[in-house]
């Protein structure tokens, strides 16, 4: 028997079960990892309710979600600013609260900045693990709840609470440890693998890192589409791989790669294609992936800041250091 049952009264725009880090290790079989698109808010929410960072949460896109808890449970919502209430009483974001059996949790629609919220419940969302993860992989239609987003009338079970002090509620993620959300984002990236000098010119890379990109409205967990850009290209054609110089012989893509399809750059998200025949001009560093989950595809803009590999690793350490008990305080 599972520890609790939750009924979905309102599923929202796209609400999926996600854990962290999803399904790494299966790329050679054609699986991108899936997992929380904003892994910072996901991990913070778990921390606040005493879960392991890997525990499954609900990734709420934009909002309009309502849940009814049939047993007592400790919940926290972290991410983009949004109105959250428990039986009509406001619940601040980044704060764990114990809910009585029968409580209703309602999440409104976020007016931004930011785009996604994570609902952690002590014990985690206990849908079956598929190929080592509970994450919903939207492109492969697997994991989570039948491989799809939540719908009204769905039910899901909760796992066993850890017994950690925070799993009883009453803890908050310190404001100073929370990331800044914006409408104009700066995203750290490394150049390559197919950047200058052999695929794009130095001028192209200067343009790439210099300009501001608007986030296209057709962005999702598969990829964040930017705007078309006419690059100079270091080659006149794709050679054996085909006409356009953005074409290469098919290779595996890293998560966060800025994949250039013709003239259109797309940042590959956690549910993206694992491989293909287009070049990758740059790669968003792991410590900045969380920002991809918060880009609002209605007017947000992005500038890429080039960093070194050493800086990227240091940013990751800083992020991890903020996701520890020292970032918690009692409400």
């Amino acid at each position: 028997m599972v520890a609790g049952n939750v009924e979905v009264l309102e599923g929202g725009i796209q609400t999926t079960v996600q854990d962290y880090p999803g399904r790494p290790g299966m790329r050679a079989q054609g699986f991108f990892p899936a997992g929380a698109m904003d892994h910072f808010a996901h991990r913070a929410a778990n921390l606040v309710v005493g879960n392991q960072p890997s525990a499954a949460t609900l990734e709420v896109t934009l909002g309009n979600v309502a849940l009814r808890f049939e047993t007592g449970a400790t919940v926290a919502v972290c991410g983009a600013p949004v109105a959250v209430s428990v039986d009509g009483e406001a619940l601040p974001l980044w704060e764990g609260r114990r809910l009585e059996a029968g409580s209703e949790l309602r999440i409104g629609i976020s007016e931004g900045p930011g785009f996604r919220m994570y609902v952690a419940v002590a014990g985690g969302i206990d849908v079956p693990s598929v190929l080592g993860s509970r994450s919903t992989y939207t492109m492969g239609a697997l994991g989570g709840l039948d491989g799809r987003a939540l719908r009204t009338g769905d039910r899901f079970p909760l796992g066993t609470e850890s017994g950690d002090a925070a799993s009883g509620g009453g803890w908050r993620f310190r404001e100073s440890a929370r990331p800044p959300y914006a409408r104009e984002w700066e995203i750290e990236a490394l150049r390559g693998p197919q950047a200058s000098p052999d695929f794009l010119t130095e001028q192209d890379m200067a343009t790439f890192f210099g300009r501001t990109w608007r986030v296209d409205r057709n962005s999702n967990r598969t990829g964040v589409r930017l705007e078309p850009q006419l690059f100079q290209w270091a080659r006149s054609s794709g050679g054996i791989a085909g006409g356009h110089p953005s074409n290469i012989l098919d290779n595996s893509y890293p998560v966060g790669a800025v994949n250039v399809n013709g003239d259109l750059p797309v940042i590959l998200g956690p549910d993206g294609p694992t491989a293909g025949g287009f070049l990758c001009a740059a790669t968003v560093v792991h410590a900045a992936f969380w920002k991809l989950g918060q880009l609002r595809p209605v007017g947000d803009t992005v500038r890429f800041r080039e960093v070194t590999i050493e800086e990227a690793v240091e940013l990751d350490r800083e992020l991890d250091a903020r996701l520890t008990g020292t970032s918690l305080e009692q409400v």
């Binding site: 490394l190 150049r191 390559g192 693998p193 950047a195 070194t308 990227a312 990751d316």
Partner: peptide
Amino acid sequence: ATASAVIERQPAREGKPGIAYRYAGD
């Protein structure tokens, strides 16, 4: 910042192909 996407190149030798190591993120 990294000046090039290529970390290192090794020429073809001993009947093995040339190898290029490229940054693909951190």
